[in-house]
Design a protein around this nucleic acid. Sequence first.
DNA 1: TTGACATATTCCTATATAGGCATATATAGT
DNA 2: ACTATATATGCCTATATAGGAATATGTCAA
Lengths: 116, 116
Amino acid sequence: MARAATTADAFNAVAEPRRRQILDVLAGGERPVNDLVGLLGMAQPQVSKHLRVLREVGVVDVRNDGRQRVYRLNGRALKPIHDWVRAYERTWSERFDQLDVVLKELKEKEEDDGGK
Amino acid sequence: MARAATTADAFNAVAEPRRRQILDVLAGGERPVNDLVGLLGMAQPQVSKHLRVLREVGVVDVRNDGRQRVYRLNGRALKPIHDWVRAYERTWSERFDQLDVVLKELKEKEEDDGGK
DNA sequence: TTGACATATTCCTATATAGGCATATATAGT
DNA sequence: ACTATATATGCCTATATAGGAATATGTCAA
């Protein structure tokens, strides 16, 4: 088998640095495609294709505005990533030395995350 | 071009669900390979290959113990992911709408969904 | 040494990219 | 209708998988 599709979940979608860059821009407010093209210095088709992936995993939404398509961040789709990685914060932050219960809870969340 | 290598960074390494499962087990303590094989129900070569990827991005370390190779979590390699995704937490958690700094200090004591 | 156990590596194949480029689609203005 | 603008899609190719199976490597014990 090959790798899972980039549209399989937020983890795969966000593994691509360009897509994280797009999200970082959108974090500052909604933008039409051409704004992203200009700000990121990427080719327009590539931006559109990356936006399609991000949209398929639900991390961005689109809105039509005249002949422009305005993309908007939907950060909630990133929550599974946050929930998963948060459990590991204790391994580098001393504040989390005795939060074993939290760790177990988040691991269980990861269990039923596979079917998304 | 193809997708970036899974060993390119922690984002790509962790995009694979099986590798997250491995890390979730190792979060409970170091383990030899065969333990992971048994606990996760994966084939041994696949486990070894996933561990190689995780090791190349620095998220696990190995130690020789007789004929076993004991793998140990090194969560610090996940910090870039945590740092990146953390900036988006405010988009789904109303707790971050105001009083950012204060609530950041307290948030680990709450475990309900996004507060009410 | 021989054998059993533990782990890593190699070879194979189907699949999915990401970027470059051309082109299709859609909308607005004249 | 025609044109310019804005965006999406299709086609192409090199590349990198992930899993399966077989095999290689390494280590202990008798």
